[in-house]
């Protein structure tokens, strides 16, 4: 099993599965409330013009979060995903 990556490192169009969410406190709560929990599949669908925030497609909706927040989320690349 390859080492999990940080969510920030994904390129637009890549898919991955959430491995761990290490954020605590308010950030952790809000990330989890939105359904970003281990096992969730996500796809990076875009980045804002200044590369930050990032837009994720997951569970039927689009979520945006900042790069420094995405750093608390570790992912495994989805098998067979492009990239």
């Amino acid at each position: 099993m390859p080492q999990p990556l940080r969510l920030r490192e994904l390129k637009v169009g890549q898919r991955a599965v959430i491995h761990t969410v290490s954020a605590q406190g308010e950030l952790g709560r809000r990330i989890r409330d939105m359904g970003l929990v281990p096992g969730t599949e996500v796809e990076v669908v875009g980045r804002a013009p200044l590369k930050d925030p990032v837009a994720l497609r997951m569970k039927g909706f689009t979520l945006s979060l900042r790069n420094n927040e995405a750093d608390y989320v570790l992912v495994n690349l989805a098998p067979g995903a492009a990239g």
Partner: peptide, 10 residues
């Protein structure tokens, strides 16, 4: 700063 965890509606 606070997190920018925001839903982008279709």
């Amino acid at each position: 700063s606070t997190p920018f965890v925001m839903e982008l509606p279709p």
